[in-house]
């Protein structure tokens, strides 16, 4: 996993988290495996309950499953969409047992700051929560693979300006490929001779493109799965 790295420097002591998952056993497991510095202040097991809990508690981080019962069947993405006005202060980290592209991309496009699989270890998950709370994006190798797939991995097709949403820059593409190969942010930084901060900037830029881009393939891909 790419998340096994030290937390950002100026980290506050504790983080409040709302945990949303429809499996009681899994919630208990996550609660037990999280660092003591991460406090689970609320839990929910369906879309309506999640929206209520997030609105009333307004935690810095919500860890939520992609597949949730209730609502209009939109699962985690529906929760994020319903809480879109809180996105500046409340960040969402998607947690899924599915690593199918359509499931993951739906929550990311709704506004989640990252995506990890449920096979993640306790320390890695705690680290991902801290990272998301700090405003960074959390990319698993799988998510990096989706990005490369959606934006086209062909080397010639690169963005030239920063404001271009529909293509990755050559550097962003390199970062994504390294993450897909299983490199942590720190390893990416040392491989490309850049700082970790720069890696985080690139990753955040890619996340923004993934959320906002109307790139042809991405749109077609999402439309085929009725994500838009």
């Amino acid at each position: 996993m790419s998340m096994s790295q030290s937390p950002p420097a100026a980290a506050p002591a504790t983080y409040d988290v709302v945990l949303v998952d429809d499996h009681l056993m899994f919630r208990a497991g996550v609660r037990a495996s999280l660092d003591p510095s991460i406090r689970v202040v609320g839990e929910a097991d369906d879309v309506e309950g999640a929206i209520r809990a997030v609105r009333s508690l307004q935690p810095p981080v919500v860890v939520l499953d992609v597949h949730l019962p209730g609502g209009m069947g939109g699962g985690g993405a529906e929760v994020i969409t319903a809480c879109a006005d809180l996105l500046a202060t409340t960040r969402f980290l998607a947690l899924s047992v599915s690593d199918a592209a359509e499931d993951v991309v739906a929550v990311i496009r709704a506004g989640a700051r990252g995506y990890v699989t449920k096979a993640i270890s306790g320390p890695d998950l705690s680290d991902a929560v801290r990272r998301v709370a700090g405003g960074d994006a959390v990319f698993s190798p799988r998510l990096a693979g989706f990005v490369l797939d959606a934006f086209g991995a062909a080397a010639g097709d690169v963005a030239t300006g920063d404001d271009e949403l529909d293509r990755l820059s050559a550097r962003e593409r390199e970062v994504m490929r390294l993450i897909a190969r299983g490199y942590s942010y720190r390893e990416v930084a040392s491989e490309l001779f850049i700082s970790i901060k720069t890696v985080e900037t690139h990753v955040s830029a890619v996340l923004r493109k993934l959320q906002l881009s109307s790139r042809h393939e991405l749109t077609r891909w999402a439309a085929a799965r009725r994500l838009l």
Partner: peptide, 11 residues
């Protein structure tokens, strides 16, 4: 471990 595998199919 962990072992990572990455396959990229280009043109």
């Amino acid at each position: 471990p962990p072992v990572s595998l990455y396959l990229e199919v280009g043109a």
